[in-house]
Design a binder for these strands. Structure first.
Length: 552
RNA sequence: GGCCCCAUCGUCUAGUCCGGUCUAGGACGUCAGGUUCUCAUCCUGAAAACCGGGGUUCGAAUCCCCGUGGGGUCACCA
């Protein structure tokens, strides 16, 4: 078996973090670029924090990004168990772990420990008082036979007896890293509730699933020597390791899901009068959330609360970026560049940085992954997204736009049908960086004619000033509007421009007053699109209203 | 604090492994012009970096050491 097999193993405690998305992306790219397989495993050994809904959400986030897994839970057209190495939820693999627990105990490399959490806390405190890190070791007078007997009736954990030697981790990105034995303790491998700990489960799963390359974030580097020691003790093959550099916020702090709570918490504090019922949660939870920085509010409560307070939530999870209206292709392209670079130039000698999945799959390797943590640059992501939107075929754009609306802005679909959106597409595509901002350039469509407020400065500059004044130009032109037939962009523009030509006027002289009449301000997409999308009746009504307003 | 990782424009990075071609290249952002009926798009241009100190060498962004700075991690979480 020389196939390349990678895996991504999230714990289902919330939406997929953007950093996790990058890890998954690199795992998939590495395997698929080598005709290997990419497996997905759900690490739900923490019964309290895991949820089926979160697992489904992560699967959905991945599929949306176009990161499909070959082995794993079947969802969104991905997954399956072709290699017969499932199940892919750790909570369903208890029997497998038990086999290896038994094996380790028989080899004398695992032993029951009866210390209570309180006792351990005490020992840690004592170690800390001496400015040392607490290292758990088996007692010198530990009686194995007696312990095994006691274990039949007493609650206990199982610990791994760490071999007394340094562990060398050979990392594909970082190189050789050595960890002294003095830093490695007899870690818990089976919890009191009988579930394996993360360390044990990963090692057993990666072996039994045939994983050849363990690709994960650098925050796991310190765990790796423990895993290597376990792997060797169990007689498994040591896989290749690749620890990816971390992703930070622009201010250098770690990009964390808690950042969202942090933003809202600050706003709640600033507002001063926000209550638990405003937040839609119960009194006690709300108080706890306000006090404890490590507590998070559920997403479906946090988002509306943020909206109510007018706070913009930092985008952290894939779902956040999706809601903002980024395209999966843009996200994938951008995050691929966080810590990796193809190191190729185009014909003009510029660094290649815009590419698709096929290119990534074919080029990705660990030798071009950097060691330095990178800061997440939203402006650059926005640029990628905008470029993609601009270059889309209008039909494709409308499809993407409508799909996004179905999920996040159903109201827009009630106002605009497909044809209307298709007509607006070119104007919107030049102006909207994200799908969420697509409403911006066409906001004038959603205000009622009789609620338009005219911007004073725009009126002064484009309507009152000059010779002739814009107001007179508009008044002069107004009657021609109703006669335009058909009321289509080209015809409208032709009418306006010929009117200007006959009267020896600059286009702006007429265009700007029309804009003010239509939108209240001096900014809009090209007049043809603006007027035709409004419809003749509305256009005429808005001009009338504006002229009356100016007369008054 | 212990252990571990890292260090090129504001940001992502190329160059580093195999020292000279680097008066350090590109992208995003910023600034300045131009095209245009407004906004936007588009085009052109500019400013902007090798963390510090020692070594090695004819020569160091590139190799070595020290310092400084940043980060990760120290759970019956993953």
């Amino acid at each position: 078996m020389t196939d390349t097999i990678t895996r991504f193993a999230p714990s289902p405690t919330g939406h997929l973090h953007i950093g996790g998305a990058r890890t998954a992306l690199f795992c998939a790219a590495y395997a698929h670029g080598r005709s290997g397989r990419f497996a997905l495993r759900i690490e739900d050994t923490d019964q309290k924090r895991s949820s089926e809904a979160a697992a489904a959400g992560i699967l959905d986030d991945l599929a949306w990004l176009g990161i499909c897994w070959d082995d794993g839970p079947e969802a969104n057209g991905c997954g399956g168990d072709d290699r017969k190495v499932g199940p892919y939820y750790q909570s369903q693999r208890r029997e497998i772990y038990d086999r290896y627990f038994t094996k380790l105990i028989e080899m004398g490399l695992a032993y029951p420990a009866f210390d209570t959490p309180e006792e351990l806390a005490e020992m840690r405190k004592a170690a800390e008082a001496q400015k040392k890190t607490f290292i758990y070791r088996q007692q010198a007078d530990y009686d194995h036979a007696q312990a095994m007997e006691l274990a039949k009736t007493e609650g206990h954990v199982l610990r791994f007896k760490m071999p007394a030697e340094p562990v060398v981790v050979n990392d594909e990105i970082l190189g050789e890293v050595t960890f002294p034995y003095e830093e490695l303790d007899d870690l818990v491998i089976r919890k009191r509730d009988g579930f394996p700990t993360y360390h044990f489960a990963v090692v057993v799963d990666d072996e039994t699933m045939g994983v050849t390359h363990v690709v994960r974030g650098q925050e796991h580097l310190n765990n790796t020597p423990r895993h290597v020691a376990l792997i060797k003790a169990l007689g498994f093959d040591v896989p290749k390791f690749a620890h990816l550099p971390l992703i930070f916020n622009p201010d250098g702090s770690k990009m964390s899901k808690r950042d969202k709570d942090k933003a809202v918490r600050a706003a709640v504090k600033a507002a001063g009068d926000v209550t638990a019922s405003d937040a839609g949660v119960d009194e006690r939870d709300f108080a706890k959330w306000q006090k404890d920085k490590s507590v998070q509010l559920p997403q479906d409560k946090l988002v509306p609360l943020a909206a109510k307070l007018g706070v913009e939530l930092p985008e952290i999870d894939v779902e956040d970026f999706r809601r903002s209206g980024y395209l999966p292709e843009a996200i994938v392209n951008y995050i691929a560049l966080l810590g990796w670079n193809p190191g190729e130039r185009d014909d003009e000698g510029n660094e290649i940085e815009r590419f698709d999945r096929a290119y990534l799959d074919s080029k990705f390797a660990f030798d071009r992954v950097g060691k330095k943590a990178s800061k997440f640059d939203r402006d650059k992501l926005r640029a990628f997204n905008f470029d993609l939107i601009k270059s889309m075929d209008p039909g494709d754009f409308v499809e993407a736009w409508r799909t996004w609306c179905e999920r996040y802005d159903a109201a827009l679909l009630e106002t605009l049908d497909k044809d209307a959106m298709l007509q607006l597409a070119p104007a919107v595509q030049q102006r909207a960086v994200t799908l969420g901002e697509a409403r911006g350039p066409i906001a004038f469509l959603f205000t009622e004619t009789d609620t338009i407020e005219y911007d004073e400065k725009a009126v002064k500059k484009h309507v009152l000033k000059g010779e002739p004044a814009g107001l007179d130009v508009l008044r002069d032109f107004a009657p021609k509007l109703a006669a335009i037939e058909p009321f289509a962009p080209e015809v409208i523009e032709e009418t306006i421009s010929s009117h200007c030509q006959t009267n020896e006027l600059n286009m702006g002289k007429l265009a700007q007053p029309i804009r003010v009449a239509m939108t209240g301000a001096a900014v809009s997409p090209p007049l043809g699109i603006t007027l035709s999308s409004l419809g003749k009746d509305t256009v005429v009504a808005r001009v009338d209203r504006f002229l009356k307003f100016m007369d008054a």
